[in-house]
Each structure stands twice: as structure tokens, then as C-alpha cells.
């Protein structure tokens, strides 16, 4: 167990190193740089001398390995640097945005997980029209562009019915009710596709499990359908669904940009987008580092879930 933990930790560190190095290299390869972005933003243009001066000020004239080493050195001392444009600490900037992002992502996972699994089970048990309906809804959910759905939801539920706010995010600590109200429309938008996907995956996995011999045996022993499904079949069928939820979480990390944009949620997706557009390397590295940490932790949670759900994995 200890050996496995050490192995996981080491592989995680390697992953973090690789991702942050790759990010540095990719940012350097992208056309333009922060010096140009700053000069363009402040004065609309620049002379070669001004450009070189700005590069020196930002440390961009140093070699890539040296720049990376400086960044890593700061990280090991607890700092991820500062925003090149306004001097704000990257840690502080990301800290203020992780709450909104996690709120949206976790709420989306919960909603899409619960609704998707429920729909999948019902569909697997009933089959027929309901099964086909889940298929249709799946395709529909995946086909509807989320920016369009978001605009429709805003028009309907915010503008016409005044049931939910059209934009903005209220921290839970400030007002839990407003926090929840503000999440409804963005989460509905993001869940549309995810629910469909999870429902279909659950239905397929559940149908497969229900056709296995051990389920027939359980039924023969007189167990109720509810017990067979919820206590035995679902546990087996849940493995691919857990994988899917893990993937969904990772994809939502950076995939919420459009929803954050439309609902004006100050999340990490927006921050990543802004930083990338302006070549703000410390911020890009900070976001990449944070995303990688979340991915690593998500993988760990998924792995642990496998062990809990599947004795074979536990035994191996």
C-alpha cells in the first residue's frame, strides 16, 4: 500500500513536471509574447528598442530553461509569480476563481451523475420506448450547442420568468441561496450533454450486467428487483460510469469557458483563456499547474473508486 502511494506520488510529480515544461515550450512556440501584448495594450505599438526593453523587464530575454528554472524556484518557495499586466499574485488570482469553477463543476457532476444514472437504470429495466427515448435524448443533449442552450435558458428563466439570475456568481459564504440560484442555469446548460451521455453509458452497462448469470442467480434466490439492481448490478455497472464522471470533471475544467462567458462566472476557464490570449506566462503556468493537480487527484479518486466497486481490482 505504501509502495503504491509512493509510486502514485512519484508519477504525479513526473506528470506535473512534464506538463509545466510542455506548457513553457508551447507558450514559447506560440506566435507573439507577453512583451508585445503589454506594449500593444498600453500604447498600440512599439519600437524594437521598447520591445527589447520590455522583454528584459519581463525576463523573456533569458533562455527557456533559465525561465523555467526561475518559475520552478519560485514555486518551490510557495509563489507562482505575478500577473504580468496588473501585478496581482497568481495564487491570489487563481484562489479567487477556483471557488466558482469548483461550484459549477461539482454541481454539474452531481446533477448529471444522479439524473444520468437514474435515467440509465430506468431505461435498462424498462427498455422499449424508454430506452429509445434515452437514446434520442442522448443525441439531442449532445447535439445542442451549449452556448445556444445557455442563451435560451437565460431568456426563458431569467428574463421572462425572473426565476434565476442571468449572470454572476455569489460566493456560498456570502449568500447560500443566491449561490444556489446562480448555479442553476449554468449547471443545467453543462448537464444537458453530460446527463445524456451518462444515461446512455449506464443503460448499456446495466443491461450488460443484468444479462449476466449472477443476476439470474440473485433473482432465483428471491431478491427483489430493487435489491438486485441497486445493491448488486449497479455496483458492477458503475465502474464505466465512474470513469466517465472522472473524464467529465477533467473536461469541465477547461471546458466551461463558454458557459462562464455567457453567465459571467469568474472561473478558471475564463482566466486560462485570458492568460493564453495575452501570453501571460506566469498565469498560464499557474492554471496548467492547478489543472494538472486536479487531474492527478481525480485519477486517484477514480482509482480508489474502482477498488471500492470491484473486488478484483482490490485483490490485484
Amino acid at each position: 500500500m505504501v509502495r503504491e502511494a509512493i509510486r502514485w506520488l512519484l508519477s504525479s510529480l513526473v506528470l506535473l513536471f512534464v506538463v509545466t515544461v510542455l506548457t513553457f515550450v508551447l507558450v514559447a512556440m506560440a506566435p507573439g509574447d507577453a512583451a508585445k501584448a503589454i506594449l500593444n495594450a498600453r500604447s498600440g505599438g512599439y519600437t524594437p528598442q521598447q520591445y527589447q526593453e520590455m522583454r528584459r523587464m519581463l525576463g523573456l530575454d533569458q533562455s527557456l530553461p533559465v525561465q523555467y528554472w526561475h518559475w520552478l524556484d519560485h514555486l518551490l518557495h510557495g509563489s507562482m509569480g505575478t500577473d504580468l499586466f496588473n501585478g496581482q499574485s497568481v495564487t491570489q488570482a487563481l484562489g479567487s476563481r477556483i471557488g466558482p469553477s469548483l461550484s459549477v463543476i461539482v454541481a454539474t457532476l452531481v446533477v448529471s451523475g444522479l439524473v444520468g444514472v437514474a435515467l440509465g437504470i430506468v431505461s435498462a429495466l424498462r427498455g422499449g420506448v424508454l430506452g429509445r427515448l434515452v437514446d434520442v435524448v442522448s443525441l439531442g443533449g449532445l447535439a445542442i450547442p451549449n452556448f445556444w442552450l445557455a442563451l435560451v435558458l437565460v431568456e426563458l428563466f431569467a428574463v421572462r420568468l425572473a426565476a434565476f439570475p442571468a449572470t454572476g456568481y455569489t460566493p456560498f459564504g456570502t449568500d447560500p441561496v443566491q449561490w444556489l440560484r446562480g448555479l442553476v442555469l449554468p449547471v443545467l446548460t453543462l448537464s444537458a450533454g453530460a446527463v445524456a451521455f451518462i444515461a446512455k453509458q449506464t443503460r448499456d452497462a446495466m443491461s450488460d450486467v443484468l444479462s449476466q448469470e449472477f443476476v439470474t442467480m440473485l433473482r432465483a434466490r428471491g431478491l427483489s428487483t430493487r435489491s438486485v439492481v441497486l445493491k448488486h448490478a449497479l455496483r458492477n455497472a458503475a465502474i464505466p460510469v465512474v470513469t466517465l464522471l472522472g473524464l467529465l470533471l477533467v473536461s469541465l475544467l477547461g471546458g466551461t469557458v463558454v458557459v462562464e462567458d455567457i453567465f459571467a462566472i469568474p472561473g478558471l476557464g475564463q482566466q486560462a483563456m485570458t492568460a493564453s490570449a495575452s501570453h501571460d506566462l506566469p498565469m498560464i503556468e499557474g492554471v496548467a499547474f492547478l489543472f494538472t493537480v486536479v487531474v492527478v487527484v481525480t485519477n486517484l479518486v477514480v482509482d480508489v473508486s474502482y477498488r471500492l466497486l470491484n473486488p478484483k481490482v482490490r485483490a490485484s
Binding site: 442563451l151 437565460v154 431568456e155 431569467a158 428574463v159 425572473a162 439570475p165 442571468a166 449572470t167 454572476g168 462567458d261 455567457i262 453567465f263 459571467a264 475564463q270
Partner: peptide, 12 residues
């Protein structure tokens, strides 16, 4: 940042 959302924000 979304211009349509700007309008919605004032409308609501």
C-alpha cells in the same frame, strides 16, 4: 464579456 449577457444583466 458576452454582449447578449450584458443586455440580459440589465434587463433582469
Amino acid at each position: 464579456s458576452d454582449v447578449q449577457s450584458v443586455l440580459s444583466t440589465v434587463q433582469t
